[in-house]
Computed example of a mutant assay.
Amino acid sequence: MTFILDRFDLSAFVQSTLDEDLGPTGRDVTSEAVIPEDAIFSGVMDSRHDAVIAGLPIAEAFFRYLDPDVEIETLVAEGEAVAAGTDIMRLKGKGRAMLTAERSALNTVQHLTGIASMTSEYVQKIAGTGCTLLDTRKTIPGLRVLEKYATRMGGAQNHRMGLWDAAMIKDNHVAVAGSVGEAVRRARDAGVEKIICEVDRVDQIEP
């Protein structure tokens, strides 16, 4: 399965996540001690709650990193709403590899699915109002691209991705510039292509 996000290196993410879990020895000592090397497992990933699914391609990458021959059947689409108890992925492969990758894969799917599911609830609440739900930069460091991907799966639209792709003028900027109008003028004169300005009062909108 091809999974491409702008400014996100899936292979590097998978490797660094597994490196964190496997530590300096690079070993899963429990699986090595308990599971025979030639054991083949079959498994199913399901949803324990009603949810909007996100992150399955990343989970697949974790399993394939440790077992390139693993058989994986993805049963639902990214962004699909499922009922509690729905099977979302089936796997068959090397037992040790499957257990070693399991937690990293599940953590990622659970985190992104949680974001997508909550986002979807807000999107449904404002349906028919003509409003668009946007996300923010208030993301966990290192996970912004994935978390903002999850909000899209839940039906929101990405706001700015960082400090680099738009000017966002807030109360502190206005205070230094002296007024909303002056702050916007400075951003415009600096050649910023996209300018967003927050206001506290209706009378700030016109300037």
Rank of each mutant, 00 (worst) to 15 (best):
K92I: 04
E80D: 05
F13L: 07
S42I: 09
I205Q: 12
L99F: 04
G93K: 04
M118C: 13
G162T: 10
E182M: 11
T108F: 01
G93T: 01
V44K: 09
E71M: 10
D203I: 02
E206C: 12
A61Y: 02
L163T: 09
V180F: 06
M89H: 09
A12K: 12
F3R: 08
M168D: 06
G85A: 08
L99T: 02
K194V: 12
G130H: 10
I140A: 13
P36K: 06
Q15S: 14
G162L: 11
N172E: 07
G23T: 06
D50L: 07
A77S: 13
M98L: 14
E71K: 14
R137I: 11
Y65T: 08
A105P: 01
E73H: 13
I53K: 05
G142V: 04
N107S: 08
R185D: 11
I53Y: 06
G128E: 12
F63C: 03
P68H: 13
D46S: 15
G93D: 06
G79K: 06
R186D: 02
E32S: 10
I195G: 05
D9L: 09
D38E: 13
E71A: 14
S179R: 10
F62W: 08
V109I: 13
D9R: 14
V184L: 04
E80Y: 05
P36Y: 02
T151R: 09
E20D: 10
V109R: 06
A59E: 03
A83D: 13
F41E: 07
L75K: 14
E206D: 15
M168N: 11
D19R: 14
D203S: 12
I115F: 03
G162F: 10
I53G: 03
E102H: 07
V174P: 00
V202W: 05
L10H: 06
M1E: 09
D203Q: 11
I88W: 03
Y149G: 01
T86R: 13
R201H: 14
H111K: 11
N158L: 12
